[in-house]
Computed example of a mutant assay.
Amino acid sequence: MKEPLVPVVPMSHTAHIRSHRKPRRSAQTTMAMRAGVAGGVLGTLAVAGASASAVAAEPVTQTLELPALTADLSTQVAQSAEATQQAAANYQLQAERDAAAAKAAKEAKADLAEAKEKAEAKKKAAEEARKAAAERATRDAERATLTADSGTTTAAATTATTATASAAATASAPAGGSVATVVSFLKAQVGDAYVMGATGPNAWDCSSLVQAAFRQVGVDLPRVSQDQSTVGTDVSLSNLQVGDILYWGGKGSAYHTGVYIGDGQYLDAANPSKGVVIQDLSGYPASGAVRVL
Results as ranks from 00 to 15, higher is better:
119 A>L: 11
155 A>N: 03
224 V>T: 15
216 Q>R: 08
106 K>V: 15
64 L>W: 09
245 I>Q: 04
20 H>I: 10
246 L>G: 01
121 A>G: 03
70 T>I: 01
166 S>D: 15
234 D>P: 07
91 Y>V: 11
20 H>W: 05
16 H>N: 08
145 T>Y: 01
88 A>F: 03
282 S>N: 14
282 S>Y: 02
21 R>N: 08
279 Q>R: 12
265 Q>P: 03
19 S>Q: 08
110 A>S: 13
9 V>D: 03
236 S>H: 06
73 L>M: 13
103 K>G: 12
221 L>C: 08
55 V>T: 12
291 R>G: 06
245 I>C: 02
291 R>H: 12
88 A>R: 05
262 G>W: 15
247 Y>K: 07
241 Q>K: 15
29 T>L: 14
71 A>H: 15
33 M>N: 04
87 A>R: 05
132 A>L: 07
274 K>W: 12
93 L>T: 13
19 S>A: 14
203 A>K: 02
8 V>R: 02
157 A>W: 09
5 L>R: 05
195 V>L: 11
110 A>E: 10
36 G>P: 00
61 T>L: 08
170 T>M: 11
190 V>Q: 05
242 V>P: 03
156 A>I: 00
171 A>Y: 04
235 V>C: 07
144 A>L: 10
63 T>R: 14
287 S>G: 07
2 K>N: 11
192 D>P: 09
193 A>I: 04
224 V>E: 10
69 L>F: 07
167 A>M: 03
290 V>Y: 08
235 V>Y: 01
63 T>N: 14
254 A>P: 00
94 Q>V: 14
237 L>V: 09
88 A>S: 15
1 M>V: 13
10 P>L: 15
148 A>K: 10
